[in-house]
């Protein structure tokens, strides 16, 4: 077969590439410039200060606390979402009466923005007026209201649960697609050979949807790492910075403390993390195409 000239695809890519460079490249270049200068609250760039912003960042205990918390946050949300989504998608891929309604209900939260989810939960979990407490007290589970958002020990796990809830719909869609793409005859053969449902799931389903799991993991890592709305609305990273993750702390440094230079350095460090994740994503995507 005639191999197309390499120039053509590149020429066709060029316009969108130029657009991407303009939209992403320019701000990143500007961030780099800001991160090695002193910049005031108003974005006015001052004198060159080298790596000072970076060394200040690395010396900041709150940065490191937020960093580790972001790791916990990302791992828990990604793990929880995958673990919840596979059974839900399996269930929804079965044939049963009212399946389309059930699918709609599971996928509906996806249409709600993280901000709205956060606001609803903030009200629900309020210690004095919240619905969650009222319900638990009515049923008799507790006799004193729980202040869900008053301590980091409770607020952070609660935020993770809400984060999982917000991430499940999209992940379920990914797995629904995965299940519908599975070749039916392989399963029929296994069943004829006498394999039980557990064995089928472990030996057939799981290996076959492996590439989808990889993609779901990478997408969820990126989503969770950058997820600002839920924590900001629930606790603003408080009390006493006990629920701050990198994005919420970044927002404080930039727009509350007005330290645009340190914030630039911080967002570049975070950008480097994300590049790493995107690299992973690209790798899995290529693997999937081969498969």
């Amino acid at each position: 077969m005639h191999r197309p000239h390499l120039l053509v695809p590149f020429a066709m890519l060029l316009p969108s590439l130029a657009l991407v460079i303009w939209i992403i490249g320019y701000p990143v270049a500007d961030l780099m410039r800001m991160s090695i200068h002193s910049v005031n609250r108003f974005g006015q760039v001052g004198s060159f200060i080298g790596a000072l912003n970076y060394s200040k960042l690395l010396d900041d205990p709150l940065f490191w606390a937020s960093f580790w918390r972001t790791c916990v946050w990302t791992v828990c949300i990604t793990g929880g979402t995958i673990a919840t989504s596979i059974p839900v998608a399996l269930l929804l891929s079965q044939d049963f009466a009212g399946r389309s309604v059930a699918r709609l209900i599971v996928l509906l939260p996806w249409a709600v923005s993280a901000t709205m989810t956060g606001i609803v939960w903030r009200w629900t979990l309020n210690g004095q007026f919240g619905m969650a407490n009222a319900m638990l007290m009515n049923v008799g589970v507790i006799d004193q209201p729980i202040e869900f958002l008053a301590t980091g020990d409770i607020a952070f796990p609660v935020a993770i649960l809400i984060g999982i809830l917000a991430a499940v719909p999209l992940t379920v869609i990914i797995f629904l697609g995965a299940f519908s793409s599975l070749p039916g005859e392989v399963f029929d053969a296994a069943r004829i050979d006498g394999a039980g449902p557990f064995a089928i799931f472990r030996r057939l389903t799981l290996p076959l949807i492996r590439p989808f799991i990889n993609i779901a993991i990478v997408l969820n890592i990126i989503y969770a790492f950058n997820s600002f709305g839920i924590i900001w609305i629930l606790t603003q990273g408080g009390p006493a910075n006990s629920t701050d993750i990198l994005v919420t702390y970044l927002y404080k440094v930039a727009f509350q403390y007005g330290k645009m230079d340190q914030a630039s350095a911080m967002s570049l460090v975070m950008f480097a993390f994300l590049i790493l994740f995107c690299g992973l994503y690209a790798r899995f995507a290529i693997q999937e195409r081969k498969w």
């Binding site: 309020n126 210690g127 004095q128 007026f129 202040e147 869900f148 008053a150 301590t151 408080g238 006493a240």
Partner: peptide, 20 residues
């Protein structure tokens, strides 16, 4: 009110408006 770290300005004002 228990656990003040759960109450912002609007929360304590609401408590007051509710006579609590």
């Amino acid at each position: 009110q228990p656990s003040p770290t759960g109450s912002n300005r609007q929360d304590i004002e609401t408590l007051f408006k509710q006579g609590r």
